[in-house]
Each structure stands twice: as structure tokens, then as C-alpha cells.
């Protein structure tokens, strides 16, 4: 287990280093991520939605379905914790 863990760790590190070698420079304005949809949100937020925090605008409107999913993740976790930890008898009423 221990050896396997170290091997996998080294493999992950190596794979990531090899992969990141080819990435655009940090902060490069011409990197795909910086010319793709990202900047478009900044350009559009004021006209479309009219709030100042672009992150909030994307979070709660442009990609609100993701946020819904994310809230469901939390909800699932809550249900899961209850499901696992609820005691029979004493907490019967809660489920």
C-alpha cells in the first residue's frame, strides 16, 4: 500500500509536470482561456444583468444551473450524513 501510494504520487506529479510544460504562460492575455468565454462574461455582465460582481453574475445567472447542482451536492451531503448517523428510535421523527 505504502509503496503503491508513493508510486502513484510520483506518477501523478510527473504526469502533471509533463502536461503543464505545454500550457500557456501564466497571465498570457492570448491564452485560450483568456480569449474564450471568460472575458465575455466581463463584457456582458453590466448590460445583461446589471450587478457589479462578475463572479456573482456568472455564479447565480449565467451558470446558475451549476450552482443549483452545487447546492444539491451540499444537500446530498446533508441527507447522507443524516442517513448514516441518525439513530433508530431516538431520532425516528427526523426522517
Amino acid at each position: 500500500m505504502r509503496a503503491l501510494g508513493i508510486m502513484l504520487a510520483v506518477a501523478t506529479t510527473a504526469l502533471f509536470v509533463a502536461a503543464s510544460w505545454d500550457l500557456p504562460d501564466r497571465g498570457d492575455p492570448h491564452a485560450p482561456a483568456n480569449v474564450g468565454v471568460g472575458p465575455e462574461y466581463i463584457e456582458r455582465t453590466e448590460e445583461d444583468i446589471g450587478i457589479e460582481n462578475v463572479v456573482s453574475a456568472v455564479l447565480a445567472d449565467y451558470r446558475s444551473y451549476d450552482t443549483l447542482g452545487e447546492t444539491f451536492v451540499i444537500f446530498t451531503a446533508g441527507v447522507a450524513v443524516l442517513f448514516v448517523l441518525i439513530r433508530r428510535g431516538r431520532d425516528d421523527r427526523q426522517a
Partner: peptide, 23 residues
Amino acid sequence: ADLFNLFVFLEISSLAGYALVFL
């Protein structure tokens, strides 16, 4: 049809799955 949305739903189903297996 969205790569990140796939991740979110993957996690919803996985979390539910872990909890169901636990009992």
C-alpha cells in the same frame, strides 16, 4: 453537454452512492 456540469452531477450521484452503500 457541459464538461463542468458533468462533474457536478457526477459528484451528486457519487455522494448519494457512497452513503447508500454505507449501511
